[in-house]
Structure formats: C-alpha cells, structure tokens
Simulated assay, not measured.
Amino acid sequence: MKKYLTLMFVLGLIVFASCKSKSEQTPKSNEVSEELPVEIKGEEVIYASDSTNLKGYIAFDSNATEKRPGVLIVHEWWGHNNYVRQRADMLAELGYTALAVDMYGDGKLAEHPEDAGKFAMSVMSNLPEATARFNAAMALLKSHASVDVEKTAAIGYCFGGSVVLTMANSGADLDAVAAFHSGVQLPIMPSTDLKAKILVCNGADDPFISAESITAFKHALDSVNADYKYIAYPGVLHSFTSKEADANGKKFDLPLAYDADADAKSWASLQELFEEAF
C-alpha cells in the first residue's frame, strides 16, 4: 500500500510539471498585441484625365492594416498648394486616406486673385472636363490599397467647396460632402440625383456669399429631402480656415480673415459628419 501511494505521488508530480510547462509555453489568449503608432506617409502622385495631366498628393497611415474610407480634398482658387496637403495629412491622422486633388492641371498655382479667378472660371465653365478631373482623382483614390472603395467622401475649400457640392449634386457616388467658405450658387443645384450627406460651413459675414443664394440652396435641398447641415458662424469672413487669409486679405485688399474658433468648430463638424456617414 505504501509503495502504491508513493507511485501515485510521483505520477502526480510528473503530470503537474507537464501541465505547468505547457501553460508557460502557451501565450495567454487574452493578451492584446501592441498597436503601432500612427505613421503618416505622404506621397506626390501623377494622374490624368483624357486631356489634362494632374499632380496630387495622397496621405495615409502606413502602420494601419485595415481598409479605411477615402476622402478627396479640393483646393481653394489659389490651386493645389501646401494648405490642401496639410488638410490631407490631418485627415490621415484621423484614420482616413486622403487625396488632395489638382483641378487646374500640372499643379498650376495662382499668384494673384485675377489669375485665381480665371483658373477657377475655366474649370466651373467646363463641367464635362471638371467632372473628368474629379473622376480621375476618385479612380486614383479607390485604387489605393488602403481604401475601402465602398466608403468615400469629398471636401473642398472656397472654389473647392463649390466643386465638391456640384459633383454631389450631379450624382457622384459619395457618402458625404463638406464645403468650407464656399459659394452655393452652383452650376448644378441639388436634385434627386444627390446621394451624399451634405455639410456647409460658412462665415455669416462672408460678402462673397449672398443671402439670396443661401436661401435658394437650402430650398433646393429641402425640396429633395436632402440630409444636410448648413452652419453660418457669426462675425466670420471668407477663408476663415486658412492661416494665410489675413496676409492675403491685406496684400490684395480683400475681405479675408482667419478665425481660429470657426476653424476648430468646422473641423469638429466634419468629423461628426464622417462618423455618421461611415
């Protein structure tokens, strides 16, 4: 009997040691792998419509592995400059892949408001070409490995706001569109072709945007039961999201002014729009 108990004790020790060894070798199932930090990668990209060579900039988190929504950003009337690239980087930090587009061709920039006006008019007066350039950018964005092609949006500033609103009104397949200090008297007004959620953030004291055009724009949106939000910031002028607005306003004697509060609030509203849309 004593030998039997001794044998059982030894066997128990062997089993215990074996189980302990296995548990030490097997990682705990509830351990969470460490997330990599956000690593923004920005790349210049060359693309084209049928008639125009275009120079853009795409930004994304290179450490993220999951597919994410893609966002087009259309520049102010000055052209594709550092400002629109900074906004692309900001969207990439929020978890999107953002493409700052070129609507003028060859990365062309305006040095004076007269040139900017001519460049902008050349695009808005030729909607087939404007649409082709916008669609070329969208095709490039969707071809990026990081983008979920079922989730897309477009935002724009000043001239760019008018572009993205016009594209949305013409039936572009977008989940959300946001326009900042943008005119709303558009070549194509809202109709049943509109699919996107709409956000417009403007300065209430922007002299470039008439009260009549706002009324007509809202009426058109209401007539098709559009999902939209129009925000007007009291005391705020044109180009309120750009820190270069004050200098440009003085240089060219234009009613432009940066407004930090409106800038921050409009960016927060954009994030809310994307959370709802995606």
Rank of each mutant, 00 (worst) to 15 (best):
F278T: 10
G156F: 01
L109Y: 04
F208E: 06
M121T: 10
V32I: 15
V149Q: 14
A48Y: 02
I188C: 04
V164R: 02
Y230T: 03
G161Y: 03
K108C: 08
A110G: 04
Y157K: 04
E114M: 11
D102S: 05
N169Y: 07
T52Y: 12
H80N: 12
T6W: 07
S62D: 09
D227I: 01
A120L: 02
L127E: 05
V71T: 05
H181P: 07
A178G: 06
A154Q: 06
F217M: 13
D61E: 06
D253M: 08
K67Q: 15
T215A: 07
R87H: 06
S122V: 05
V200A: 05
L36G: 00
V74Y: 11
L256K: 02
L141F: 01
G42D: 01
F134V: 08
M1G: 14
K250D: 06
Q86T: 11
K28S: 14
P128Y: 11
G171P: 04
L7T: 14
K22R: 14
K195T: 04
H238F: 07
A264L: 01
N81V: 14
H144C: 06
Q185A: 13
L186M: 04
D89S: 01
V236M: 09
R133H: 11
A216H: 03
Y104V: 02
H75R: 05
Y4V: 15
S162R: 10
T241L: 04
I198F: 08
S29R: 12
G117Y: 05
D102Y: 04
S125E: 12
A116P: 00
N30S: 15
S213T: 09
D205N: 15
Y4H: 10
L5V: 15
P27H: 13
Y4Q: 10
L109P: 06
I198D: 02
A132E: 11
S191G: 13
V74C: 14
L54K: 00
I58P: 00
A88D: 08
G105T: 08
L94F: 06
E35H: 12
F134G: 04
V123Y: 06
M121C: 00
